[in-house]
Design a protein around this nucleic acid. Structure first.
Length: 444
RNA sequence: GCCGCUUUAGCUUAGAUGGUGGAGCGUGGGACUGUUAAUCCCAAGGUCGCCGGUUCGAACCCGGCAAGCGGCGCCA
């Protein structure tokens, strides 16, 4: 049952002039009454297979003639090096078995025309048929990049002695403003939500593990309809004891550069197939990411005659103007206290600011990391909660962490899908996740 | 929460000024011994998103509804 040969291996020249057995799906098929060309696809690539009536006999030939796109087959044959075949290798078929056929009355719906004007798979039809669109080239490429990104995150943190730690998805409180929480019916209770962040629970484990990370889904009930938003997204978060804002930024930069380098190491053909400029990715992997204070960003924007006042948060329209000349991601630090929630630590050098950072990706992709130092003393967290008029009850356990040996600490959250979207050059974040969830779509 | 756009065959779409709809791909049949998104010939396939209105007559004009998409705010 297990495969003995893979298309990618054959195309690499491993089996030149040898007999192989390939298992896969028909990607394209064409031919005459005497000769049939079948382009076979498996997870490693495609290869042209030639079946001649004289060689395979009438029964097999007729079977292959009637086999439509996405029919699953086992083909046995000889590997020929042949310039006429795409990839330079070709299988001369000696025998064939059809494993799973496709009914002509219901052919595979993802046709060339279905993808014609929708390279990113953004038509209603392709979104409705996402379960079938997954096996097409562009989607397969995105899923491979995605796998490399997840692997890179794990290897970065583990190589830096972080411990993987899991938080619950059902939570009874909010990290961000309450309006973006998904309520979950929970045995009749009305105060249960899907988590928006691992952070609060990570802070509870921080005194135990000191350096910890996770990759987990986060949920935000934002009705945002943009190329950057999903309601369910994958969140890579880290929390670190005895660390300041710049220590945390170093890890944020290190992580993103490591993901970019992993893409170059593992997925060069995939990036090229997407038309991505490899020099650009190399620049993201090799160069340091500059840091800019909020004040400097505001001054820069004001210098460009953008209508912004000190104290305003930088929304996407401002980020976009600011990042249009960036050639690598930039950190923005030291936002005004009034623009950020209570858990950000106030800058002891100037109480107007908090010790936080956002990492903004270039090419118009916007924010990919948000993080900073946490308010870590009991006295200060109580003052900040009261200042914001937030009820203390919801954060009892969070405050408790500070009652027993609080230490300086902090962390960040990275939008994994956003990073993949940016590095792959996707038009929309939906392109890089198999079954995207937004405010209007939860199927398939 | 706000603003905008779209909806014609399985898919992608053409249909100025209102006169019951064309094509390409796919599918079926036929031709072809080397194709590269093969090509050529033929055929089937459409209550023009739904409801109502104007009109002798609506895919087209008007109103409502629905679904989808794009963007803003907010964020990763």
């Amino acid at each position: 049952m297990v495969k003995s040969h893979w298309v990618g291996e054959v195309q690499s020249g491993m089996y030149d002039d040898q007999e192989v057995e390939l298992k896969g799906w028909i990607y394209r098929t064409r031919g005459s009454n005497k000769i049939r060309f079948i382009v076979l696809r498996d997870s490693t690539g495609t290869i042209q297979c030639v079946a001649k009536r004289d060689t395979v006999g009438d029964e097999i030939f007729e079977g292959l003639k009637g086999a439509l796109i996405e029919t699953s087959v086992i083909l046995n044959g000889h590997v020929n090096v042949d310039e006429r075949a795409p990839g330079g290798h070709e299988i001369v078929v000696s025998s064939a078995t059809i494993v799973g056929s496709v009914n002509p009355e219901n052919p595979f719906p993802i046709t060339q025309s279905a993808m014609e004007n929708a390279d990113g798979g953004e038509t209603e039809f392709l979104l409705d048929n996402r379960h079938l669109y997954l096996r097409t080239g562009r989607m397969t490429t995105m899923l491979k990049l995605r796998s490399s990104a997840f692997g890179a995150i794990h290897s970065y943190f583990r190589d830096s002695d972080f411990i993987e730690y899991q938080a619950p998805c059902f939570v009874a409180g909010a990290v961000e403003g309450g309006s973006t929480l998904f309520e979950v019916p929970y045995f009749g209770r009305k105060d249960v939500y899907l988590t928006q962040s691992w952070q609060l629970y990570a802070e509870a484990a921080m005194p135990a593990l000191e350096k910890l990370y996770t990759i987990a889904p986060s949920f935000r009930a934002e009705k945002s309809r943009t190329r950057r938003h999903l309601t369910e997204f994958w969140h890579a978060e880290m929390e670190m004891a005895w660390a300041g804002n710049s220590d945390i930024m170093e890890h944020g930069e290190g992580l993103v550069r490591h993901i970019a380098q992993t893409f170059l190491d593992e997925r060069t053909p995939e990036l090229e197939s997407l038309g991505r400029d490899l020099d650009l990715i190399a620049r993201y992997a090799d160069n340091p990411y500059p840091r800019m204070r909020y004040d400097e960003a505001v001054e820069t924007l004001q210098g460009m005659s953008v209508d912004i006042e000190w104290g305003q948060d930088l929304d996407y329209s401002k980020e976009k103007i600011l990042t249009q000349d960036f050639d690598v991601p930039h950190f923005l630090t030291h936002y005004p206290k009034v623009a950020k929630p209570f858990y950000h630590r106030v800058d002891p050098d100037d109480e107007k600011y908090v010790l936080c950072h956002d990492l903004l990706a270039p090419e118009g992709y916007g924010e990919i990391i948000g993080g900073g130092e946490r308010t870590w003393s009991e006295e200060e967290i109580l003052r900040r909660i009261d200042e914001e008029g937030t009820p203390r009850d919801a954060y009892e356990f969070y405050i408790d962490v500070r009652r027993f040996g609080g230490v300086p600490h902090g962390g960040f959250g990275l939008g994994v899908d956003r990073v993949i979207s940016w590095l792959s050059g996707a038009e929309h974040i939906r392109e890089v996740i198999p079954f995207p969830r937004d405010s209007r779509r939860v199927t398939p």
